[in-house]
Simulated scan of single mutants.
Amino acid sequence: MSYAIVGFGSVGQALAHAFARKSIDVTVASRRPSEALAPQAWAIGPTVVAKSLRDALEADTIILAVPFWEHREVAKALPSWEGKTIIDATNTNAPVEDLDGQPSSAVVAKAFTGAGFVKVFNRLPAAVLAADPSVNGGSRVVFLSSDNENAVVPVAVLAEQLGFAPIALGPLKDGGSLVQARGNTWAELIFQDLVKFK
Rank of each mutant, 00 (worst) to 15 (best):
A130I: 02
T27V: 03
A126G: 06
H71V: 03
A168K: 06
E82D: 08
V49D: 09
G116R: 01
A20C: 10
K119L: 03
G7K: 05
L144T: 12
D132S: 10
F121Q: 11
D25L: 06
S34H: 12
A109I: 08
P133A: 03
A89W: 04
P79G: 03
F191Y: 14
T27F: 07
V108P: 01
L64A: 11
A165S: 13
T185F: 08
V108D: 07
K119E: 09
M1G: 01
N91G: 05
G12I: 00
E149S: 07
N150H: 00
T92L: 03
A126T: 03
H17E: 12
A151R: 04
S34T: 07
V120E: 09
A38E: 13
L99V: 13
D174I: 13
N136L: 05
T61Y: 03
V108R: 06
V48K: 05
Q192V: 01
Q13D: 05
A77H: 10
T92V: 05
V118D: 07
L172E: 09
K110N: 09
H17Y: 03
S34L: 08
G114A: 14
L194Y: 01
L144C: 02
T185H: 08
T27C: 12
R32S: 11
V26H: 00
K84D: 08
K84N: 09
G176Q: 11
L178W: 14
A151Q: 03
A106I: 14
P46L: 06
W186N: 15
E97G: 06
S10T: 00
K76R: 15
D60E: 15
H17L: 05
D98C: 14
L15F: 01
N122G: 02
G170P: 06
V6A: 11
Y3M: 05
R54T: 09
L53S: 15
D88C: 05
A59S: 14
F197L: 12
A14W: 00
N122D: 05
S104F: 02
P33T: 08
P79Q: 10
A131E: 04
E70P: 01
D25Y: 03
A156I: 05
E73S: 13
E58I: 01
R123C: 00
A77L: 14
P103N: 09
V142F: 00
G175K: 13
K173F: 08
P133H: 03
N150G: 02
N148W: 02
K51S: 14
F143D: 09
T92Q: 08
A43N: 12
E188Q: 15
F8A: 02
L172W: 10
N122Y: 01
A77P: 08
F19Y: 00
A127T: 10
E73P: 02
G183M: 12
T27Y: 02
L169T: 12
P39K: 10
L162Y: 07
G183F: 10
F68S: 07
A65F: 08
A187G: 15
